[in-house]
């Protein structure tokens, strides 16, 4: 009987040990999940905290009427205390369906001699239509005197760097889908570690698309 009792006691102990192990495992698992969550939170927050440029494309474009439309390129944020003397964007489009008409002014300013002024962007409409890629660049040759800065950026407003004007070509029919892709974008700072650049993953981009409609 004593032997049987001893065996029962041993089984109970083993059962309790197993139970403790399970609890410990669950706790570890919970801690691991918490750590993973925190890590993901910081990664995602960092990513979402990056300034973003977006192609604000109308969801539909009518094939009747003047067939023209405009794409705004807003910038979500501009870090304070940094000068960006140069900026460029390369945006691809379907040249067989679209004619690039040119750019229009945005509302983000650069420094000027007596305050602020709108930047003078360089773009070549003819070449853009030839190659289906719009290359736009602004360069302040003083590397700072006429730079983009947060002072020329209003956090309350929708800050549009530049607008692109397009026209549907005659071949476009209802239902045609046209994509616009930011191939490269940079707001360049003299200290390139402060630049907002796709190549450095310090600038988010959002591409756009539109559909031809009645």
């Amino acid at each position: 009987m004593e032997q049987i009792n001893d065996i029962k006691i041993t089984e109970q102990e083993q059962e309790e040990k197993k139970k403790k192990k399970r609890i410990l495992l669950i706790i570890l698992l919970i801690l691991l999940l918490i750590a993973l969550g925190v890590t993901l939170f910081f990664i995602l927050r960092k990513n979402y905290a990056k300034p973003t440029i977006k192609l604000d494309v109308p969801s539909k474009v009518s094939i009747s009427g003047d067939r023209e439309f405009t794409i705004d390129i807003p910038l979500s944020d501009m870090p304070e205390g940094v000068l960006y003397p140069a900026a460029s964007f390369s945006i691809s489009f379907d040249k067989s369906r679209l004619e690039f008409m040119g750019i229009e002014e945005g509302n983000v300013f650069v420094l000027a001699d007596n305050g602020f002024d709108l930047p003078n962007w360089g773009v070549n409409n003819e070449r853009s239509n030839d190659i289906g890629l719009i290359n736009i660049m602004y360069l302040d040759q003083t590397a700072g005197k006429y730079a983009f800065t947060s002072e020329g950026f209003s956090k309350e407003d929708r800050n549009i760097l530049v607008r692109l004007k397009f026209k549907l070509r005659g071949s476009v029919i209802k239902g045609d889908v046209m994509n616009f892709v930011i191939e490269d974008a940079v707001l360049a700072a003299s200290d390139s570690s402060q630049s907002l650049a796709m190549t450095k993953n310090t600038l988010n981009t959002v591409d756009g698309r539109t559909i031809a409609d009645d």
């Binding site: 140069a86 460029s88 660049m137 590397a143 360049a188 630049s195």
Partner: peptide
């Protein structure tokens, strides 16, 4: 891109 032009300046 613009970074290269600015770096040159």
């Amino acid at each position: 891109n613009a970074q290269d032009a600015l770096d040159t300046v």
